[in-house]
Amino acid sequence: MTEETQKIHFKIYRYNPETDKAPVMKDYYLEVPKATDMMLLSALIQLKAQDETIAFRRSCREGVCGSDGMNINGRNGLACITTLSSLKQPIVIRPLPGFPVVRDLVVDMEQFYRQYEKIKPYLQNDEPAPAKERLQSPKDRKKLDGLYECILCACCSSSCPSFWWNPDKFIGPAGLLQAYRFIVDSRDNQTTERLKDLEDPFSVFRCRGIMNCVDVCPKGLNPTKAIGKIRSQLLKEGT
């Protein structure tokens, strides 16, 4: 018995800055079983078998590594946890907006990581370390929920106009979510210094609260809320 199939239409952004004058949207078609719950990443891998020049990043294929963030039908998301059946055709795939394109769907994440580095994403505590470990009460540990789960896929920062206009000065939603994760951590005692590093007009305050970051986060996190909490803490310390 032959399985019923359907033809899926893709429009994929193709650009090699070294050889192409301008990017083009190229059409691709893929035959898939009609009743499929195939993920977009699997479809892209099959398309790559058709045309091996398509470039995209991928790794864990289960929404954990954050490698395959891309713009899918105008909305940032992870290809590996986006089902084909949830997408309207033609499925338009572009690289993450606002980031320099290295090739096709692969973007240069350097500025994004530089902003992440700025918030010092590690525990800082200048008190002598206890013999075993720095303990944390379940109540304090709970404060990290909704913050530590970020996988740095950049879907949020790449959907944020403030980050598009000032990627060198505004930390961006991903970095700020992590900044708050360390500010609120009871084991970190550099809170005042961390807040001081954020009180300029750009690092935090360039956020206009439009919540694009919340809308696209594939892990369901809320950077806008974390940014609001950083502002409240700054206000508490500064007034």
């Binding site: 300029d200 007009p201 935090v204």
Partner: peptide, 18 residues
């Protein structure tokens, strides 16, 4: 910390509050 001399107070928190 990003420094800027042309903003109202030179400090994000003060500008935001103002």
């Amino acid at each position: 910390m990003v420094s800027n001399v042309t903003s109202y107070s030179g400090n994000g928190l003060r500008d935001w509050l103002a």
